[in-house]
């Protein structure tokens, strides 16, 4: 008896052939499009016109501190003195009183970063580092060697 329905395996082969044909057509179309585009660019170098990227809007300028470098230096010395006497909690308490622009300006003044790149937190960390350095840079008069070891002198 003759089977009027194609076998599943035959059906699969037919679908696979159709896919191959379709792929070849697409490749031919794609290469034709590529050729056309290359010719077009050779003839019209500015085609298609480049679309300008809209510039990102600048962040609104930060408010600059009104304090002078001398005032900032005085603030730094005061901060170092407070930290020397009251530790990091005294430092944190004093720094919390400062406006963002002042602590950033202070950080810049002591050479820790620039205005445009500093966040409040980074500025506080920078000032803290400088305060710690300043605390370690002290002149302490040592006792004379002979006073320290009187027996040596005998």
């Amino acid at each position: 008896m003759n089977n009027e329905f194609t076998e599943p395996t035959d059906e699969l082969k037919r679908v696979a052939e159709e896919i191959n044909l379709l792929r070849r057509d697409l490749q031919a179309t794609s290469s034709a499009l590529g050729r056309i585009e290359r010719r077009l660019k050779a003839a019209f170098p500015n085609y298609p016109p480049k679309q300008k990227q809209p510039k990102e809007k600048r962040q609104s300028e930060r408010t600059r501190s009104s304090k002078t470098p001398q005032e900032l230096q005085a603030i730094f010395e005061d901060l170092a003195d407070r930290t020397r006497n009251g530790g990091d909690s005294a430092f944190a308490a004093k720094v919390n009183e400062f406006k963002d622009e002042d602590i950033i300006a202070l950080s810049v003044e002591v050479g820790m970063g620039s205005h445009s790149r500093l966040s409040r937190q980074k500025a506080v960390d920078g000032v803290r580092k400088r305060v710690q350095e300043a605390m370690q840079l002290q002149f302490e008069k040592k006792r004379n060697l002979q006073q320290a070891n009187p027996a040596d002198g005998e």
Partner: peptide
């Protein structure tokens, strides 16, 4: 000088001033 160099120079000045007054 850069701000950083200025900072260190100010620290040198402070230390020298301490050395002058304390010793």
């Amino acid at each position: 000088m850069t701000k950083e160099s200025q900072f260190y120079w100010s620290q040198v000045q402070r230390v020298c001033s301490q050395a002058a007054s304390r010793a």
